[in-house]
Design a protein around this nucleic acid. Structure first.
Lengths: 260, 260
DNA sequence: GCACCACCAG
DNA sequence: CTGGTGGTGC
């Protein structure tokens, strides 16, 4: 019986975060790492530095923004970077791979904007398409992990001050409904299920917010039952977020341990 | 009899260079400091940090580029930031002040460009107006220092490889002639007069040039005879230029010692 | 190569 | 506030 460690981390630029990421990986050494907002073309991804730490990396990047990657110490197969869904494939937001008979789906869901805006509609379309993509290609009976930056804080406990977040981005009923629909397909919100009272914020606005712990929980590790029953622990690692230099991402990684 | 130390330094942004500048000033502590390419509005100049090191600062800055300043540990009077010459006053390139009965003129002469271009013509007009400005407002009999980035390498010895600089910016006959005319008004090229064989480069292109010493001498301390006769030493201080971090300016300071 | 700017995205 | 881009200036 093997224990695996998986991490999801919105790095907000893998170039700006390279040093911090590498020193964090030396400490934490997850077996599987899912990155969002790498903000690099695939040719500029630091494959070599990560290989030195034992990771093989698979990327779906673009110029300037978005961009996702999966880095793994284990053998993998069946890389997916294209879903053939228009909205999903419009930008570099999705990558999936099969590792030890587990599907690892890594997604950077759109941020959105005020209700009615183009970006808001893009976010909802993205979620709808993603639901369809799941239904058409996977089954809740599989060993499947859906991880990443969902850009939705599901419940009031996931928001540092709910009174400040009425009809605010990441907390609107439409957005919460969209993520709930994904979960209801057959996934467990692993952090919340294993930590019912701890907020578990994963994102804090740049500036003083981290020092006042004014955060949101918008990064998730979702799992099907068959794999969740092997989960031992899920937590938010504040180490990379609570430092001044090198400058951290605005997100913190979420880490899970499970047995195989 | 008092010994004074004067430095001229094209810092290429006083904001980007603040740390390096302050630590250099703690080492070298010139009594008078003339800066070029401060690249800040006057309101953003680090007056307070320099005051802590004993300097009172006078600035002529603008947004984004150019900008000059004089910082002094001594009492000063008669600040000039406006010449009423069109080309000179078109940008923030000139500042002058009287310190201990010495006129300190600090100027960032235009870089220019290929012969015939607008920038080339601007540079020559600037030099012509400056000549006129000198004639109309000062006399070679005064204690006067004209320092700064002249953007002209006067002779072949001032260029690391003259064969690469034929009709190149900073070495064209028109540019050399313009600076020579200023000198012929009644100034001494103090570095060259006191160091006849050492090249004394003050600028190296960013990249490998500094490590191969591929430089140009384009920053000067020019002096009238009455003050030059009290000069004891003039040198280029490579300390701030030969470091990797914090990132240095592309120029090195020129320093002079003279008695009062 | 490395400052600045304006703009876009979070 | 902090990333990216593309443009300019040297």
């Amino acid at each position: 019986m093997q224990e695996l460690k998986l991490a999801t981390y919105n790095v907000n630029s893998v170039r700006a975060r390279k040093e911090l990421l590498l020193s964090w990986l030396e400490r934490e050494a997850p077996d599987i790492l899912c990155l969002q907002e790498t903000k690099v073309l695939d040719v500029d991804f630091p494959f070599e530095e990560l290989r030195k730490l034992g990771y093989e990396c698979f990327t779906n990047g673009q110029k300037g923004y978005n961009g996702v990657a999966i880095c793994t110490k284990l053998l993998s197969s069946k890389l997916i970077t294209k879903t053939n869904f228009k909205t999903i494939d419009a930008q570099s937001r999705f990558i999936a791979i099969n590792i030890s008979d587990i599907w690892v789906l890594n997604c950077y869901f759109p941020h959105g904007d005020v209700r009615g805006s183009d970006k808001f509609n893009f976010k909802l379309s993205f979620y709808e398409e993603f639901m369809q993509f799941l239904e058409e290609n996977f089954s809740p009976d599989l060993n499947l992990l859906l991880v990443g930056d969902m850009n939705v804080a599901l419940e009031d406990i996931d928001v540092y001050d709910p009174s400040l977040f009425v009809d605010a981005v990441c907390t609107m009923p439409e957005e919460r409904g969209a993520l709930k629909k994904i979960i209801d397909w057959g996934l467990v919100d692993t952090f919340r299920t294993l930590n019912s009272s701890e907020p578990g914020y994963t994102w804090w606005e740049y500036g003083a917010a981290i020092w006042k712990n004014e955060g949101l929980r918008i990064d998730y590790i979702l799992a099907t039952d068959s794999i969740f029953k092997n989960f031992t622990k899920v937590w938010v690692d504040l180490w990379p977020r609570r430092r001044r230099s090198p400058k951290p991402s605005d997100h913190a990684p979420v880490i899970a341990k499970f047995t195989l």
